[in-house]
Simulated assay, not measured.
Amino acid sequence: MLQLIVRYALFAVVATLVNLLTQRTLLAVWSDGWGFSLAMLTGTATGLLTKYALDKRWIFLDNAAGRGVESRKFGLYTLTGVVTTLIFWGTETAFWLTWNTNQARELGAVIGLTIGYWVKYNLDRRFVFPSRKVEV
């Protein structure tokens, strides 16, 4: 159980870093309001793809293959990510609007993603990968 928690937390950190590095890269080029929106969307997409690949293989031990099965699972995984994304974007945006600094924005992102990932694990365990019954 502890190994699963550590692995999940590590993968959340990896996906968060991918997300934030993507955002930093885009914000270095476009620092206006549109750049902020593009950075959030693109960072979220890269973080989602990274986390899905890691969770599927190493958290839920899912070996299902095939385009149809994989599409269905990724679709459900993405839908459960809507809750994570709303928590993440809301927290990140609140910090950005309140302090208007990249450090505050990233702190808001980390806080939002931490809460969101806890919620997401529970949704994924129940709806996306229901054959893996592990409590965290």
Rank of each mutant, 00 (worst) to 15 (best):
V6W: 15
A9V: 08
L10G: 05
F11L: 06
A12C: 14
V13Q: 05
V14Q: 03
T16K: 01
L17C: 13
T22H: 07
Q23L: 05
Q23V: 03
W30K: 00
S31A: 13
G35C: 02
S37Y: 07
S37K: 06
S37L: 10
A39M: 06
A39L: 04
T46L: 12
L49M: 08
Y52V: 10
A53V: 11
A53S: 13
L54F: 15
D55E: 07
R57Y: 09
W58C: 05
D62R: 03
N63Q: 10
A65K: 14
R67V: 13
V69Q: 15
E70G: 05
E70R: 12
R72D: 06
F74E: 03
F74K: 10
G75H: 11
L76G: 04
L79Q: 11
V83G: 12
V83A: 15
L86E: 07
I87E: 04
I87T: 13
F88T: 07
W89K: 04
W89Y: 13
G90I: 10
A94E: 00
F95I: 05
F95M: 08
W96G: 01
L97C: 10
N100W: 02
N102S: 07
A104P: 02
R105L: 05
E106M: 11
E106I: 08
L107M: 09
G112P: 03
G116E: 01
G116Q: 02
Y117S: 13
V119G: 02
V119I: 11
Y121G: 00
L123Y: 04
F127M: 13
P130I: 09
S131H: 14
K133P: 03
V134Y: 02
V134A: 06
V134M: 05
